[in-house]
Simulated assay, not measured.
Amino acid sequence: MEATKRMAVLVGCNYPNTKYELHGCINDVMAMRETLMNRFGFEESNIQVLTDEPGSLLMPTGANIKCSLGRMVGKAKSGDVLFFHYSGHGTRVPSMKHGNFSRQDEAIVPCDFNLITDIDFRRLVNRLPKGTSFTMISDSCHSGGLIDKEKEQIGPSTIINDEKLQLRCTPDAAKAKTIPFQSILQHLSLHTNINTTDIGTHLLESFGADASLKFQLDSRELDTIDSLKPDAGILLSGCQANESSADMNPDNAAGKAYGAFSNAIENVLKENPAALSNKQVVVMARGMLKKQGLGQQHPCLYCSDENAEAMFLCQNP
């Protein structure tokens, strides 16, 4: 009988030498890589890392990220544990779904601006073989709800502990991990030279079949991409869909840049060597961010009821 596998795709986008530059995203995924191997039993050969640092062997373009995730899911068998950690910018785009034209949907921003949307992550989760698990950490702005139609366990519609605590000011070292929709539209327009405010037109012109399904399918076709009940998707988001996640760049020689949510998860795991549920990890990360003066950033959990109480990355109790 084939042994179960633990596989991961880790993506860190710092956007170097651009006006959107961040500083801690690559540090986030390299720290997670060590945690996966040392605590959760992932083998180095089963962890793929994509970063946009100079000389990177595999740049985190939209196509490369989706290819890496698709290949991981394609290898999965029942019992396997799959993990995706993204640290970088997020954004929101106008909804393409029928009857929801006023809504905005969530997306991550790869280094080439080829957006990967909540629809793409829903389709990915729908491909998972029965009996697998897929845990996704997105340390990016607007990351709540990044797996379309996943059930909210901790988020804007739920009250966790002391949600009404007075918020403190965001530290000066924090930078929001977001690129506004209009800035993405302007960036893509410079490349396509097409005079339209329809972002789908620009993405399809630039990336063709590698563009998000959100822009390849019409609104009624998008309605047919349903969640499986129950499904194996587990999303730990750095913030709610209308909030920002912080990139921290300490102003001292000893300081090392990091994403606030990624760092909070790392610290929660260090302080709690025993197994924690997905719900416990998110609640503790929320508490840690509040203590650090980042009370405006509320990590969320989206998954089935069963997976909310399941152990994070299936660690044995």
Score class of each variant (00 low, 15 high):
Arg6Gly: 01
Leu10Cys: 05
Leu10Gln: 01
Asn14Trp: 00
Asn14Val: 06
Tyr15Glu: 01
Tyr20Thr: 12
His23Gly: 11
Asp28Thr: 08
Ala31His: 10
Ala31Gln: 11
Arg33Lys: 15
Thr35Asp: 03
Met37Trp: 00
Phe42Met: 08
Glu43Asp: 14
Glu44Trp: 00
Ser45Gln: 14
Ile47Phe: 12
Val49Tyr: 08
Asp52Asn: 07
Met59Arg: 12
Pro60Ser: 05
Thr61Val: 09
Ile65Glu: 07
Ile65Cys: 07
Met72Cys: 09
Val73Trp: 03
Gly74Trp: 04
Lys75Arg: 15
Ser78His: 01
Ser78Glu: 11
Val81Gln: 08
Phe83Tyr: 13
Phe83His: 02
Phe84Met: 12
Ser87Lys: 07
Ser87Arg: 05
Gly88Cys: 06
His89Glu: 07
Arg92Glu: 05
Arg92Phe: 01
His98Val: 10
Phe101Lys: 13
Phe101Asp: 12
Ser102Thr: 14
Arg103Gly: 13
Gln104Phe: 15
Gln104Ser: 14
Gln104Arg: 15
Val109Ser: 00
Cys111Leu: 07
Phe113Ile: 01
Phe113Cys: 06
Phe113Leu: 12
Ile116Trp: 07
Ile116Ala: 05
Ile119Cys: 11
Asp120Glu: 15
Phe121Leu: 15
Phe121Asn: 08
Asn126Pro: 01
Leu128Val: 08
Leu128Asn: 05
Gly131Ile: 08
Ile137Glu: 05
Ser138Gly: 05
Asp139Cys: 10
Cys141Met: 07
Gly144Phe: 13
Gly145Ala: 10
Gly145Thr: 10
Asp148Lys: 12
Glu150Tyr: 06
Ile154Pro: 00
Ile154Lys: 02
Gly155Trp: 07
Asn161His: 12
Leu165His: 11
Gln166Val: 14
Arg168Gln: 12
Thr170Glu: 11
Ala174Trp: 02
Lys177Leu: 10
Thr178Asn: 11
Ile179Pro: 03
Phe181Ile: 00
Gln182Ser: 15
Ile184His: 03
Ile184Ala: 03
Gln186Arg: 13
Leu188Tyr: 05
Thr192Gln: 05
Asp198Gly: 02
Ile199Phe: 04
Gly200Trp: 00
Leu203Cys: 06
Leu203Ala: 07
Glu205Thr: 15
Phe207His: 04
Ala209Gln: 13
Asp210Ala: 15
Asp210Ile: 04
Asp210Phe: 09
Ala211His: 02
Ala211Lys: 02
Leu213Phe: 06
Leu213His: 07
Lys214Val: 03
Lys214Asn: 13
Leu217Glu: 04
Ser219Ala: 13
Arg220Pro: 00
Thr224Leu: 14
Asp226His: 13
Ala232Val: 01
Ala232Phe: 00
Cys239Tyr: 12
Cys239Met: 14
Cys239Asp: 13
Ser244Asp: 10
Ser244Leu: 08
Ala246Ile: 00
Met248Pro: 00
Gly255Phe: 09
Lys256Gly: 05
Lys256Ile: 15
Lys256Arg: 14
Gly259Asn: 03
Ala260Gln: 01
Ala264Arg: 06
Ile265Asp: 02
Glu266Ala: 10
Asn272Ala: 05
Asn272Ile: 05
Ala275Thr: 06
Lys279Val: 08
Gln280Arg: 11
Ala285Asp: 05
Met288Ala: 11
Leu289Tyr: 02
Leu289Ala: 04
Leu289Met: 11
Lys290Asn: 12
Gln292Pro: 02
Gln292Phe: 06
Gln297Arg: 12
Cys300Asn: 01
Ser304Trp: 11
Glu306Pro: 00
Ala308Arg: 11
Glu309Tyr: 09
Pro317Thr: 10
